[in-house]
Each structure stands twice: as C-alpha cells, then as structure tokens.
Design a protein around this nucleic acid. Structure first.
Length: 496
RNA sequence: GGCCACGUGGCCGAGCGGCUAGGCGUAGGUCUGCAAAACCUUUUUACAGCGGUUCGAAUCCGCUCGUGGCCUCCA
C-alpha cells in the first residue's frame, strides 16, 4: 500500500508524512473567531481537516487534534484606532462580551455537528489562556526579540529576520515588505512598520481587558495560537493547518514567536486549504458576499435558489481538492445534491448485495472492482485527494446499479471481492469522508407527507367519514405521531 | 507596485509527460395505467493564446492575455 504524502506549504512540495513520535500525531488548526456567525467559507477548513483527522485515525494513529476558539477579539490594523471587534459589537447588541462569544460558539458547534465533523480533542479558548500568552511574551522579551512601548509589546521582526528565515512560509522578503508599504502610515510606537503586537494596551472604553506586567490590555492576534499549540502539543508538533489567507501574517508570525520562545519551528507540516469563492471572489465579510451556514441550511438568502443540506455542502467541498479554489453556485450545489443522492443509494444497494454462488463469476468485473476500490487508498494518500476517491466510487456506482437493474444479472462478484468493496465503501464514505444519512434533510418531505394526510383527514371529516379520519389519526399515533386539532381549526403534529 | 496561484468540453470540477477522471446537464432507451422518479446507454478536434523542449505536452520552459489570493481583520 502506498504511504501518505502531504503538501507542505512550508517546503512547497509533497512530502512523505512521518510523525515525530511514531504512532502519534499532533495537529493544530486555527479555529473560528466567534465574533459573528460562521459562513460557507468557514466550512471548508473544518471539513477538510475533519477528513484529515478521520484519515489519520483510520490509519491507526493516536491523534490529538487541537482547534482553538478565538474569543478575545483582535485589534484592527495599525494606524487606525485599536478596537476589539467583539467588545464593539457587544455594546451594540447590549450583550456581555462573553455572552456574545458563547452565542456564536454554540452556533458554530451546532453547524459543525450538522456537518458531521468529529469534535477536536481539545478546543481551547484564547480568553482561557491569557496567562500562557503573557508567559510567552515575557520569554520573547527576555530574549530581546520584543520591546514595550506605552503599555503595548511588539515583536521585533527586523531583528528576527537577521537570524531566522522570516517570510519563508508566505514567500515574502522583508525588504520587499518595506518597499511595498503602500500607504505611509505612521508606525507610531513601533520601531518598524512590520513589527506586530504581542500585547496591546487597552484604551479606557475597551471592555475585554486583563492585567499584565505592562498594564491592562489584551493579547495580540498571533500569540494565542503559539501559546495554545505549545501548551497542548509541545514545542514541535506534526501538523499545523488553516486557511490560505492565514499564511501571512498570522502563521508567519506564529513561526517567529514560537521559534524564539521554544527555540524550535512549531510544526513540521503546514497544510492550507484554499478559499471558497462566489462569482470568482473570495467569500468574506469585507467583500460583503457571505452566505452564513444558517442561511445555507434554510435557503434564506436572496442568492440561494433553495436550501442546501449540510451533507450536500460537505460532499460539494469533498468533490474538489482542498488546495483548489471552489466557486459557489446554485448549479454546482444542486449537482452535488443529486450526485450525493445517487452515490448514497448505490452505497446502500452495495451493502445489501449478497454473494450468489449460483451465478457465474466474472473475473474481469472482479478485477475492475478490486482495482478501483484499492485505488481509494492510493488517492487519499496522495495529499488527501477526496475528489479522485469519489470519482472512483461513481465509476463503481454504474456497475452496482447494473446488478440491481438486471443488466449484470447473470454474473456475480466473488465473495472476496464483494466483501472488499463493501468494506472499502463503508470505510471511506462513512469513516473517512464522514458522510452520513441525512434525516434532517428529509424533514421537509415528511412535512409534505403529513400535510397531505392532514388534508385527507380533513376532507374525510367534512364528509363525516370518521372511519377514515380516525384511521389516519390512530395509526399515526401508533407510529408515534400525534395529531393535534388546534382551537382555530388548524391541525399540527408532534413526533413523540 | 511586490509576492503567489489559477485559466480544462454546456456548467462544476480531477489531472503533475504517453494509458477512460467523475458529477450535473443533453440525447436515446428500460420500467410505468398516466406522469414523475429511478436505472441503462450516449455525449471521442476539452484543455486561454503564441512559441519552445521532447519520439510524444492539458501536463515541462518562455512570452502574451485574462481571473483571483496575500501584502490590512479574514477559514
């Protein structure tokens, strides 16, 4: 069997995956900022890394998957006034900051469950690790790579770049950065424009604030991931993941901080997923083109022609390689919906197939099935190419349907091949790709059925055909569905 | 302006030097009281343009055009 190869953003090539500690994998993925509702773009990394997590487990690794919750909020760009997005919005909504954070965290978890993602092993919050962050900043200062200014602490990028390969991950050269400064913003209290904040002094109106050796303030954006990944995964761990848009400055800064503090590059393999676009543009708050997950599930957004179920979206994302951009469109989602349905039905049929010794074995067909099923391993090992795995499945779907329709009635797979195919399909569809039966999506259809029954019952009652009306009500009750005649004449139902 | 990706048949999307990607759609057909659904088959100048390397290029190199990402919060 082939071995796992992953594309490492740091080296810009595919590398054999070899964990630091045999049999164990530590993986850190940048989690959501819970200052607002998650949108389709956010679904991509968490589904992508869920498949990676699942596959590593499938391979037998003991995986510790750490995905943080950024609940401390970050200050805006230098030059503009520092502001904490979370506390700003909380004032508007008249909520406690932590209340707001809790609300969006819950919503995020709800959506992740809908997507059938496995829970991370640890989901640390930034606000819960202020102490660790302060400790880390102190170490960096003690080493002389950070300086204090008016209660804020900045990382000295220029000094770092003199000793370490700053910019390697994102393909940036410090000199270019200096030259490419488009606007001559005042660098203020920073020594150099490229320096980034480790700690920011909080202005009086800032609600989220903590005591620190440098006065009241809040942590800089990048330090939380360095602190939490170090705490739970160690000074060097296997995989660090996130969206491509985090390459710079976020991950570059993380590398710098951790390298100084821990005397070690934090991660061996950097894995980045590409963006989801809409009309060719990245989906993002600043472009004002987001479709939130609740809108997607309910269809309540003007650009949506219909609601799309979580599994449709998961499948849609898996049909593309994670490092390619993926453009949203109703047409593409609808194609995914139909494709998933076809795959799922054939999968069910396959599991029901029984070996029939009375039928003639077709060696060629046997080889065909074996080859295509074996290739699942090869493709997923090739930098998690879920698109190719799915393509192979669809090729076999035709054959499976042929068994069912009778076109291949006269022949049969060998017991061994059938068994292998069943196993591979189950392992990949359910365990690795994380697809599941979608009862929730059928809720709408159930509604239609119920309304039909309710109408029939109404008609029967109006004709005093109580035998029929009672039959409907009583039999539904036996199934656990209670019809309720409301006072205003409407009929509702409850599933018990 | 700097750095980096990408440009595949009606649409979406694999592809990493030779061998069928796949999905959706289309067109035939099977099934069916009718319809829908489902299923089968069909879709063999698709690879932005122009050069080059090679026995052979969508795939490597160069140039041109186009789109996008990062450089600022961002998955």
């Amino acid at each position: 069997m082939s071995s796992l190869k992953v594309y490492n953003s740091y080296s810009r090539q595919k590398e054999n995956f070899e964990p630091i500690v045999p049999g164990h994998v530590g993986m850190y993925v940048c989690g959501p900022t819970v200052s607002g509702e998650s949108h389709l773009g956010h679904a991509r990394p968490y589904i992508t890394f869920d498949v990676i997590f699942r596959y590593l487990i499938y391979l037998g690794y003991k995986v510790r998957y750490v995905r943080n919750i950024t609940d401390a909020g970050h200050f805006e760009e230098e030059g503009r006034q520092a502001e904490d997005k979370i506390s700003k919005k909380a004032v508007i909504e008249k909520l406690e900051p932590m209340e707001l954070v809790q609300k969006y965290t819950n919503l995020f978890h709800w959506a992740m469950r809908k997507f059938n993602t496995l829970d991370p092993s640890i989901e640390p919050t930034a606000t819960g690790h202020i102490v660790e962050q302060i400790d880390m900043i102190r170490k960096i200062m003690a080493d002389g790579y950070a300086y204090e200014a008016n209660g804020s602490v900045y990382f000295d990028v220029k000094k770092y770049a003199e000793h370490y390969p700053y910019g390697k991950l994102s393909g940036r050269i410090l000199e270019d950065l200096i030259e490419s400064t488009r606007e001559l913003e005042s660098q203020g209290e920073k020594h150099n424009w490229q320096d980034f904040a480790l700690w920011k002094a909080a202005p009086p109106e800032h609600i989220m604030r903590w005591n620190s050796p440098w006065g009241e303030g809040f942590p800089g954006w990048h330090i939380e991931c360095s602190a939490m990944s170090t705490k739970y995964l160690g000074k060097e761990f296997d995989i660090h993941g996130g969206g491509m848009d985090l390459l710079f400055p976020h991950h570059e800064s993380e590398i710098a901080q951790s390298t100084i503090c821990n005397k070690h590059m934090p991660a061996r393999y950097w894995i980045h997923n590409n963006m989801i676009t809409i009309n060719g543009k990245k989906m993002g708050k600043s472009y004002n083109n987001v479709i939130t997950l609740t809108e997607l599930f309910s269809g309540r957004n003007p650009v949506l022609e219909q609601a799309y179920s979580p599994m449709t979206i998961r499948f849609f994302i898996l049909q593309t390689h994670y490092r390619s951009t993926l453009d949203f469109s109703n047409e593409a989602l609808q194609a995914a919906e139909k494709g998933l349905k076809r795959l799922w039905e054939a999968y069910g049929d396959l599991q029901k197939l029984e070996f029939d010794p009375a039928k003639k074995n077709d060696a060629e067909l046997d080889a065909h099935f074996t080859k295509y099923c074996k290739e699942f391993d090869e493709f997923i090992n090739d930098d998690f190419n879920t698109a190719k795995v799915l393509a192979n499945m669809f090729t076999l779907v035709s054959s499976i349907n042929s068994f069912k329709s009778g076109a291949l009635e006269k022949v049969s797979l060998s017991a061994q091949t059938l068994d292998f195919a069943k196993k591979q399909f189950r392992n990949y569809i359910e365990d690795i790709l994380g697809l599941k039966e979608e009862n929730a999506a059928d809720q709408q259809k159930l509604n239609g059925v119920m309304n039909l029954l309710i109408d029939i019952r109404k008609e029967a009652r109006s004709k005093k055909d109580y035998a029929t009306s009672d039959k409907i009500r009583n039999q539904l009750l036996e199934m656990g569905i209670l019809l309720k005649d409301e006072k205003d004449g409407r009929v509702s139902y409850v599933i018990e």
